[in-house]
Structures are given as structure tokens and as C-alpha cells.
Design a protein around this nucleic acid. Sequence first.
DNA 1: ACAATGACCGCGG
DNA 2: ACCGCGGCCATTG
Length: 141
Amino acid sequence: MPRTEEAAAWYSAVYSAVQEVPYGKVTSYGHIATLLGYPERPRQVGMCLKYLPRVEEQPDARYNSASVPWQRVINAKGVISHRGVNGAERQQAALEEEGVEVSRDAMGERWIDFDVYGWFPRYLPSERAERETEEAEDGEE
DNA sequence: ACAATGACCGCGG
DNA sequence: ACCGCGGCCATTG
């Protein structure tokens, strides 16, 4: 459990943001951090997920491995980060369960082919404005 | 109390 | 294209 109020608030913010990643879609730690207004904290996003309680241990917790789709968060390179024993392997299984295709590269890394802004339909206000402008321009041509 | 350690990332060289 | 480095901060040793 987080020690300070601030930390607790951060954990909740991260968990609730991750809950918005749609089924079958994938996003990155950095994108979650950016959405929350702290683009320099992707690492802390990973930390929150690391400490996400498992549903077996805390079935009634607001945030646990069943209510928060932790498996939909990967790193900015598009690769499932390794951790612990079989961590990446379990994440791959969870993703494949929902139809996400996971490949292996020459180094054995588990990567997912995703389009940086195609996977998660939520943007920072500034990004949203840019996209809408671009789309409007495309429409005029 | 202090130092090391991460489910990370973008920028330079 | 491939490191290395600094920023980040709760947790752990």
C-alpha cells in the first residue's frame, strides 16, 4: 500500500486510467502517464501495476487484477516488458485471450504491432485539437 | 537513515 | 540504428 495520500491518489488515477483501455486494445506506460498530466512518470505507472493486488488475494478491492486490465499496458517499443517469473508470458496469454496478436522477434521479445495513436481513443486536449484540425484539412482536399 | 532498484521514456551523441 | 543518461519516486534491503 502507498504510504502517502499523494501516492494513493496517483495509484488510483493510474488504475482508473488503465480501466479505460478498451478490450482487445493495447497502450503504453508512457501514454497513461501523459494522459494523467505526468509525461515524465511512465516508470511510476509500471510500479502501480506491479503492486496491483491479485484478485485471488483481494477479491473485493476496487482495483485488482480482475477490475484493472493490466495486461493491456506494454512499453513504448511495443514490447511486453519482462519481470518476475513468467511475467511476460502470463501477460501474453492474457492478451491472446482477448484476441490480441503477440509475435516474437529474433531476441525472443514478445511484441505487438500497434499504431501509436490508433489503439487508444483518448487524447490530451492539445493532441485532440491537432487531430481534429488535421482531419478537417483532409476533409477539405 | 541511506542506497539501490525497478512492468519506463525521450533525448543526445 | 544503437547506447547512455537523467528524470522519476515508492518500495526494499
